[in-house]
Design a protein around this nucleic acid. Structure first.
Lengths: 342, 342
DNA sequence: CTGAAAGCGCTTACAG
DNA sequence: CTGAAAGCGCTTACAG
């Protein structure tokens, strides 16, 4: 069954009066062909409505222009906002994006990256914090190096251990802002509900927090849970009702908004008023942070823009050394923080 | 550069002592080969760690096992929760998913579907309400019919005008539940902030609402806005402060949670207390509905499960007539609704 | 049911 | 820079 109507590269070659090889170079390669001929071929292709067959390209050894996007969990607003930015930019550039979930485990992350490589996607964006585990990061680096060797373009969002192009959230300084804010309000006994400590996002934010409170005599109590709303609930319970009950905290920091929202929920459950009895702060400023009860004070991280930056990075040809796009943060003070009572 | 290490189908054919053709039939087709041989080939393939080259398959005329998922906006929790269900099930079935955004316009929707078809994805899931516009729906039907002819599998979520496999949210009855709930509380003047009226989701929910209040003498005031948080804000403003100010409403329904959350935000802004001065209800029960201020009464629609159902549908071979999976809803009564004052 | 062969639409050495 | 040719790894009529 001939697919009439869909012009192939031979058709444009013929129409342009050049060989298949030249047409191919005009459309993909770019090098090894005179600019005039290339321009002519492209014009003809345009007129004919030529659309390259991606499977043929993939088979012939080339890479497919698809962008592989790896997130931990697309239902998490942090990642869905990044994904939105990636897809928006990709669509503008006529690239399609294939999405995979790593489900918050390093093994799955690696497996998904390899699945993406097998499909010969031309570029890969890995969103989400890296792991402190050197063995895992080294395997990831190796996989991506091989990918780069084959002409693939990779970029990461939010991890700085890998030697490749990266979009860096302002985690450390965001932590500083949050710490300084609480210290300035007068808080001296602060609880932190952290995600897994091997995530560099968690480590960076905690380090920032410590720096932000360094001038005041603040006691920090850190518990580590899942990096989710449920983790926030569990952490809050432990801090106000568990073994740390005696600490008499006046503020709790959730290391992302999902956790902070879980914390708010648990405190409400227990009849603890925010910010009267306890202040609460988050990180990220996901869309709903302004709408929860009370409205959440948080350090805004520009997820959507980070997704767009990542696409811009992989669209640029590779260079010798890894490029980095640093983004900024903004402390958004809302209703969930206030000076401690008394 | 020989890709050593990655066994090809010829390699498994050789190892299994059969022809390439038979090996191919064993791995993909299924028909035209004896069960014993097929089983043997598959075992050998397994041992060799054979992974089919999707591009070769796509080129050879077959379809690629990738699932194309079309949403309006991945940053919207309604769609990200559906996407999460789709990706979860797809990963379990070893399928990858390619995602595209339709940005809430019919033209873009059609364009994205065609882009997906050009890539020869084996299946397409379209999430999101259909349009009342018969011309658009007819074009969509034509595109999907052609796709089905080529062996593709398609399913829609949340639109029932198209003659293909569908997962149907319980929009009408959810509307009934919401209407009945408000009527039972004693509300008689109810405002509705609707999304675009040409969306069948909107039409279905409004029809349900009308049915739910039919027994009481309720006056419904409907305004139509964008199907987003901002739309909710605009609608609330119009209902309490604009030309409808005199209506003296005692409750406002947002036709999805995003709108309802926008409504809550606007009312808070204006110093109108919920539920004391005005009750508010939403639809969907997105993850944050329980955490907004006040916690939102809403009709729960199982987005994640709907995504999984859609994958189950497209995994099943095509049948003569379109199949339908109906899902249910659950009215979740929280703090945003109460009897009207006075 | 099974096999030999053509063909899917490109890219990329290899010559010129 | 340009072209003829081989090859990427599969699927699918076409015979048997």
């Amino acid at each position: 069954m001939k697919r009439t109507g869909t012009p192939r590269l031979v058709d444009v070659a013929e129409a342009a009066g050049v060989s298949l090889a030249s047409a191919s170079r005009a459309m993909s390669g770019g090098s090894g062909i005179s600019p005039e001929v290339a321009a002519h071929v492209r014009r003809v292709a345009q007129e004919l409505g030529y659309e390259p067959n991606l499977h043929a390209r993939g088979l012939a050894g080339g890479l497919v222009p698809t962008i592989g996007l790896l997130v931990h969990e697309i239902g998490d607003p942090y990642f869905s906002e990044i994904a939105s930015g990636v897809i928006r930019s990709a669509t503008l550039e006529n690239r399609s994006v294939q999405i995979a979930q790593a489900d918050r485990t390093p093994e799955s992350e690696l497996a998904q990256v390899q699945a993406l490589l097998r499909q010969r996607v031309g570029s890969i964006i890995i969103a989400g914090s890296g792991y402190a585990d050197p063995e895992h990061e080294q395997k990831m680096t190796a996989a991506l190096a091989e990918f780069a060797l084959a002409g693939g373009r990779a970029a990461v969002i939010g991890r700085h251990y890998l030697p490749i192009d990266a979009v860096l959230p302002d985690n450390h300084r965001a932590g500083v802002s949050v710490g300084a804010h609480l210290a300035a309000l007068g808080h001296r006994r602060i609880g932190v509900v952290a995600g897994p400590l091997e995530l560099n996002t968690v480590a960076d934010r905690i380090a920032g927090l410590r720096e932000g409170i360094a001038d005041a005599e603040v006691e920090l109590t850190v518990v580590s849970k899942e990096f989710t709303r449920e983790g926030g609930i569990a952490g809050a319970r432990e801090l106000v009702d568990g073994e740390f009950r005696g600490r008499d905290l006046t503020a709790i920091v959730g290391l992302n908004d999902a956790m902070a929202i879980g914390i708010l929920s648990e405190l409400r459950q227990q009849g603890i008023r925010v910010p009267d009895d306890l202040s609460v702060v988050g990180f990220d400023d996901i869309a709903v942070a302004a709408d929860v009860a009370p409205a959440l004070t948080t350090a805004r991280i520009p997820m959507f823009e980070m997704g767009q930056h990542a696409v811009a990075l992989i669209l640029r040809p590779a260079s010798d050394e890894a490029r980095t796009v640093s983004t900024s943060h903004e402390l958004i003070v809302r209703a969930s923080t206030a000076p401690p009572r008394g």
